[in-house]
Computed example of a mutant assay.
Amino acid sequence: MPGVVRAAMNPAELFDLELGLLLEAIYRRYHYDFRDYAVSSLRRRVRQAMDRFHCSSVAALQHRLLHEPATFAQAMQYFTVQVSEMFRDPGYFRTLREQVLPVLQTYPSCKVWVAGCSTGEEVWSLAILLHEEGLLERTILYATDINPDALASAENGAFALDRMAQFSASYLAAGGRASLSDYYTTAYNGALFDRRLKRNVVFADHSLATDAVFSEVHLVSCRNVLIYFRRALQDRAIGLFHDALVHRGFLGLGSKESLQFGAHADRFEVCSREHRLYRKVA
């Protein structure tokens, strides 16, 4: 009705309104689509970005990101979660070693897709696993993420030395056949992993929100990524994985993720419910 003015929004409502406008603006300006990411997580991370860039409101942050591409590049770390570790959830990697890799060994060559690879801990973990099972030389590993800085770190394969003790313990718990230290050299308080492990790794930009399938693969490992998506985007991502997988291919998810109740639940069978490992239905 003309002339009727709605009561003022409370701060939380106004924040969410500005957040929605920010995500739409980022999509239209830079073609990164965060609009179907989980709102609770985005609220927290956008507030962190506001503090980092000294912005008193989401609108002020939006102005800076739209007009300063270099600032947006720095802010990407707040929109994409870069939390990972080598052999995270060792039982998952042990299950891959015992149940999945013996099947992959029956193929003359293999392709593995690590979707949302972050700073590369899982990629290097899988490379070591494939090496120990005699598969690395005939496997192409696709490591994808939307954050260019994260991809650069992943490709570099250098990690803080003080993380190695935890990584080593997880490696052994995952059924490691040697010592993790056999795969890296140390210098300047860091650990640099053997360059030979990444000879068949392709690091590439790919968005689960906007991009299509790029290759046929035998295993997709996308762990602790879907928890930051809303249901519609989760379903889109799982649909991509299904389309990418070969007949009877494998899908691995994070410990808090599941296909249950999703749009593609009936297109996969459970290999290990505990370790969130699935197989494409024939």
Rank of each mutant, 00 (worst) to 15 (best):
R44C: 04
M76R: 11
V58C: 04
A38Q: 12
Q74I: 04
L61A: 11
M86V: 14
L129I: 05
R94W: 02
L96V: 09
E155G: 09
P102D: 05
P108C: 11
W124I: 11
N156T: 11
V112Y: 03
T139L: 00
F87T: 05
I146M: 07
R29I: 04
M86F: 15
K111H: 09
E24R: 11
Y78N: 11
S40G: 14
I26E: 00
T95I: 02
V46C: 09
V46Y: 06
H67E: 15
L17S: 14
P69Y: 14
L135I: 00
D33K: 09
P90Y: 13
E98F: 08
T106M: 10
A38F: 09
C117M: 00
M86Y: 13
V123W: 05
S109E: 14
A152N: 15
R64K: 15
A150S: 13
A25K: 06
L17N: 13
L96W: 03
Y32I: 06
T80L: 07
A115R: 01
T95C: 11
T95A: 11
D51W: 06
P108V: 10
A38M: 09
E132H: 06
Q48H: 14
A150G: 09
H131T: 10
C110N: 12
S125I: 07
A127C: 11
F93R: 10
E18L: 08
D36S: 09
I26F: 03
E132D: 08
S125A: 14
E155A: 12
P69C: 15
E98S: 12
L42Y: 01
L96C: 06
D36M: 09
L21D: 04
L42D: 00
F34D: 03
A127G: 02
H131K: 14
G157V: 00
H67S: 15
W113T: 04
E85D: 15
L22R: 02
L126Q: 04
L19G: 02
A38I: 03
L104S: 03
Y37P: 10
R138C: 02
T139D: 01
T139F: 00
C55F: 01
S57E: 10
G91C: 15
Q105M: 10
D51M: 09
L61M: 13
